[in-house]
Structure formats: C-alpha cells, structure tokens
Amino acid sequence: MRASVISAINNNLNNAISLIDAIDTNIYTDVTVGPYYSSIGSHVRHALDFFDCIIHGIQENDIDLTARKRDEIISTNPEAAKNHIREIQQRLASYVDVNTDYLLHVTDNLGDGKVTIMYTLESILAQANTHATHHYAIISYMLQTLNVEVVIPGFGYNPSTPVPKREGI
C-alpha cells in the first residue's frame, strides 16, 4: 500500500475532526436543514461507515458496503465520532506495509440490487476518501444554511478543484 494514499485519507479525516472541534453539539446534531433533514453528525457517521465496511471485510475478502453499522452514537456524540475517526486512522496506518497486489470482492447496491465488483485495496480506499469529501460538501451547504461559519481550507472540495475556486467553509 502506498503511504501517500493513507496520508491523503488521514488528512481528509483530520478535516472532520477540525470540523467537529469548530462546532458545538447542537449544530452537529441539528436536523432542520432540508431537503433531507439529516444532521452533520449523520453525514460524518455515514462517511465513516464506508471505512468501517472496508476494515471489517478486508480479512475475509468480502467488503459489503451495504452492511453499514449506522452507529447512532457517532451521529449524536461528537467525541465518539472523533474517537472513531482516530481508530480508523490507526487501522489505515497499519495497511501501509501490506501487499495490495490482489483483488478484493466489494459488494454494493448500485440501484438494481447488490452487485459484487473487484477492487484493489487502494482503489476502494480512494473511493471511500472521495465519498467522505462528497459528504463534506453536503455539510458545507448545511453549515451555510445554519449561518455557521467555519473555515477549513479545501473542506468539501475535490482536490482536483482549481484552488481559486476553493473557499473552504
């Protein structure tokens, strides 16, 4: 596993910790923003669920992205979320010296039922990282709607977005 992949993911996960540190629990758990009326905490939890599925399925070569834990403690307790992020980061760091020259079975529902696709560990982790960024973008919209200003450079932006267009949140 390339250390650069794990480093990029850990930097992105650190952004979630920075976000959690910058807002209070009421903002983290607020469910008043439409159209989905989900909380920032639920988006953080959802992004972490993706990493959990990878971590829990890697040993058996059976990663099922539909088998998410949906731990509501992470959705409602910012400290629990930060602790869980750190646990994920520690686990990911342990993959740096792992041979990734094999394919993993990854199951997901693409809209017409479950399908299993072959991935490398690096590719599924890259997808998980992009997935987290996507949810950070949703969180950015939620914060704007709630009139909460938090500045985390690049938060919610894909790294390929031109720097002049990035404003953070």
Rank of each mutant, 00 (worst) to 15 (best):
G41W: 01
V115G: 14
H105D: 14
T120P: 05
I124N: 01
H84P: 07
Y37F: 15
G111M: 02
T133K: 13
R86S: 13
D21W: 10
I20D: 05
I124K: 00
T25E: 11
L104S: 00
E79M: 09
A126H: 10
I88M: 06
I54E: 00
A80L: 09
N99A: 05
H46Y: 03
K82S: 13
I17R: 08
A16M: 15
A16T: 12
L104I: 04
D30L: 09
D71Y: 03
Y102P: 01
A81N: 06
K69W: 12
Y37L: 14
I27L: 08
Y36G: 07
T76F: 01
T25M: 11
I23V: 15
H46W: 02
A81D: 06
T76K: 08
D30R: 03
D30E: 11
Y102E: 07
R45P: 03
I23R: 06
V31N: 12
L110E: 12
A47G: 05
I117M: 15
E87G: 12
Q89L: 06
Q89K: 12
R45Q: 07
P35C: 09
H134W: 11
M118T: 14
I55V: 06
Y95V: 03
S123Q: 08
D21T: 15
Y95W: 09
S75M: 01
L65K: 00
A81R: 03
P78T: 02
T130V: 14
N77H: 06
L103R: 05
L110K: 12
E72F: 05
S123F: 04
S94L: 10
Q90C: 13
Y95N: 02
T120W: 03
S94E: 07
D64E: 03
S123D: 11
S94N: 08
A16E: 09
N109G: 10
H131I: 09
T29Q: 08
Y119R: 09
L65H: 00
A80N: 06
T107E: 04
R86F: 14
T25N: 14
I54D: 00
R68M: 04
G111K: 03
N109E: 10
V106F: 02
T130W: 11
G111W: 04
G34D: 05
I73R: 09
Y28I: 00
D108W: 10
S123R: 13
D71F: 00
G113F: 11
Q127K: 10
